[in-house]
Design a protein around this nucleic acid. Structure first.
Lengths: 198, 198, 198, 198
DNA sequence: CATGAATGAGCTTTCATTCAT
DNA sequence: AATGAATGAAAGCTCATTCAT
């Protein structure tokens, strides 16, 4: 019944997630990741080819988790209103839970890595984003069926919404760090999304 | 004849802008910056305390320029429509002219630096953002006077709009890199902003 | 059924011979040797104390084989001429068959090892060499009995001859690598040995 | 009148010569070389690209010196006898002065390095050897003119002689290490070279 | 006996920073 | 004021060796 043969991969990925998002790629060091994972430095190299590979796998691991969780949340909601609010709440919660990680993940494309790794990271991000866009586009489709959303380009709108949400959550996080108020923000955001400014 | 006293400072800042935005903070190296500025490595340290200080000054220098240019553009336009379009066009052009720099600047808060420098960079970014928000809020006020904008929280809306624009420009840049079409994007964006999705 | 008890020892020695002569001591790695021997990495340590010990045993194993084969070849030949030619041919063939190994073996004294191992390797080489010298000295004695060799110090001459042969074979190998001609080399070598240059 | 601007190259090469010939390429470490040269570790990298480059330059440096010295010695001698003895004496002295280095240099082709470096080292050795062969061939020509050497292939003979000398000197060195007698060796060697064994 | 996952000492190399000139 | 040769801390990575299974 032996299950965790070579089972340290997840431990390492979790440790890497913490250290990378805390220190950034270049300031993170393999020793600290190993220490935090409770293993020897060399063990990391049994599971990952090198630091860049570990970084890429770590981004992939977390994005995979993000999309899966987001999907669960939206699937379990019923109707446009619930689904849309669920979608937005999910992101606020995500940022509240781990501001640094969320911000770091979505900006990991910026980090200067070898061309090959850079492409892999970019692809994985692009993919995750595309899936998130798909999820909102689907919500919008339901909204249209329910007559709550006007006839818009769903894909494009979904894309814009992702930007708004992530940007808004980022701001939210920054304000939280600065202890500024941000009450009622979500309501205003919803109103702006639904009715525009005109 | 005392004109270009400290003239080297600007040369260094320009060189730093190019190298940092191209390679990222940790992969940029002082030697290359010096070379590009046409001076000796040691000379940088006559003008800047260290690498982090140079980075901070460089971010400041560019954001200062960004705000000044944005302001010029909006001031020279007349009426809500012209000012608002000018505002959006300005950002699209910014990204088209130097995608890397724009992206880099607005995400420079991510870079892992010593706490002290990090705070200074964050402050400078926060400040620039606040000024940009002020500029849009002002545009919105004019829009309300002209009866083109409904009664909304101008500050909050301005904030959201910044996110949308920057996010949209970021996407625009990524698509450009990937050679995907993005025609008519601006029109759709405007329509969404003005009318919402409801 | 107890036949290939310690049968793995030989497999390991053969694998070690290939890997060490191909990569050199410091670039060879235990993992590859184990793999090539078709066993687990840890198993090597059941048979050999450590990498240096394996190296020493491997040198010993191959020199033992070298001397035994050389002896067979010379014993099976009759008379000075046949024996002497046999001796020389044997070395040319040795180098042709496995240039790298031959070269590597005779220069293994160079490799930087711990003092203790170094001494053991040096002794084993010294010994093999002494036995080879003994074999030629014996051939020379027969040559003198047949009146074909003048009255020389057999031991000393044997020693010089070994140098000539090995050096010549080394050159032969290098030329072969460089695809240069080396025809008639053996004839000239024999003539020089027999008649000198005066 | 500043002369030794960036003048540490030679110091480093000398330190590298000692350390590499003492420990071998793979056991030598950059720190010790720096220490022995009386400089900081990083300074080596101001003068040499990397460890392999340093090794190559060090081999080149010493072979260049070897050929130049050998040439001087032979040029300053008059007539076949003096030149030939000078040639042989030179090598005995070389080995007596620095046995390890001599042995190491001529076997440096063995060391496992990256293909590119390996080729460069091999070329430099090949070249030095060719020049040494040229020097002896020239001595032999003089011997023929003086009627002291019979009509032989000078190039080939020179090649064999190099092997004999180097091999003999190597043996000489080993015996010295082992404190065995080696008196009169040179005389016997000369006799064998001139008259052969027939 | 046999294994291979785990380890950490030890290596090369980079580069911000200093300082004598 | 300007320089760039010199420095050494710090980091990624390899691999012989161990030991629990």
């Amino acid at each position: 019944m032996a299950t965790n043969q070579r089972g340290k991969e997840k431990e390492i990925l979790k440790a890497a997630t913490i250290v990378f998002s805390d220190k950034g790629f270049h300031n993170a060091n393999m020793g600290e990741i190993a220490q935090r994972a409770g293993i020897g430095k060399g063990t990391i190299y049994e599971y990952f080819k090198n630091k860049e590979d570990l970084f890429f796998q770590m981004v992939d691991f977390n994005l995979e988790h993000y999309i899966a969780s987001l999907n669960d949340r939206v699937q379990s909601a019923v109707g446009f209103d619930e689904k849309f609010h669920g979608f937005i709440d999910f992101h606020y919660e995500l940022v509240n839970r781990n501001m640094k990680l969320a911000d770091f993940l979505f900006k990991s494309e910026q980090i200067s890595l070898k061309a090959e790794t850079k492409k892999k990271v970019a692809d994985v991000l692009f993919n995750a984003r595309a899936r998130a866009v798909g999820i909102i586009a689907d919500i919008l489709r339901i909204g249209q069926q329910e007559g709550k959303i006007r006839d818009i380009d769903r894909e494009f709108t979904a894309d814009i919404l992702i930007n708004m949400i992530l940007g808004c959550c980022g701001r939210h996080a920054t304000r939280k760090q600065r202890d500024e108020g941000f009450a009622l923000e979500k309501e205003k955001l919803m109103s702006m999304i639904m009715e525009g400014i005109g």
